[in-house]
């Protein structure tokens, strides 16, 4: 159960995402989707062509951003490839 057959470290997984789309789910009601350009040991990330989703009482607020440095502090989940609705 504890055996990881691929022997892939989490940081290696993120490294493989460089240059492709990634879905970032933050602690709290925020999500971002963008192309991962790079990251550091704190998993601060440089993202390009970003769409930010904020879930507020009034509904989803969408913001487009050119290039950002995302603070790794409040990241909860990373999904390589982007959100499922991107598949279309």
């Amino acid at each position: 159960m504890a055996n990881n057959p691929s022997q892939l470290l989490p940081s290696e997984l993120i490294d493989r995402c460089i240059g492709s789309r990634i879905w970032v789910i933050m602690k709290g009601d925020k999500e971002l989707v963008g192309i991962l350009k790079g990251f550091d040991v704190y998993v601060n990330m440089v993202l390009e062509d970003v769409t930010e989703y904020e879930i507020t009482a009034e509904g989803k607020r969408v913001t487009k951003l050119d290039q950002i440095l995302l603070n790794g502090n409040n990241i909860a989940i990373l999904v390589p490839g982007g959100p499922p609705e991107d598949a279309e």
């Binding site: 470290l9 993120i14 790079g38 990251f39 040991v41 440089v46 290039q67 440095l69």
Partner: peptide, 18 residues
């Protein structure tokens, strides 16, 4: 951590960005 070993042309680290 195994980060930062490979530096490809498309990589832009937080330091580069700043």
């Amino acid at each position: 951590s195994g980060t930062g070993e490979k530096v490809t042309g498309t990589t832009k680290t937080p330091t580069d960005f700043l």
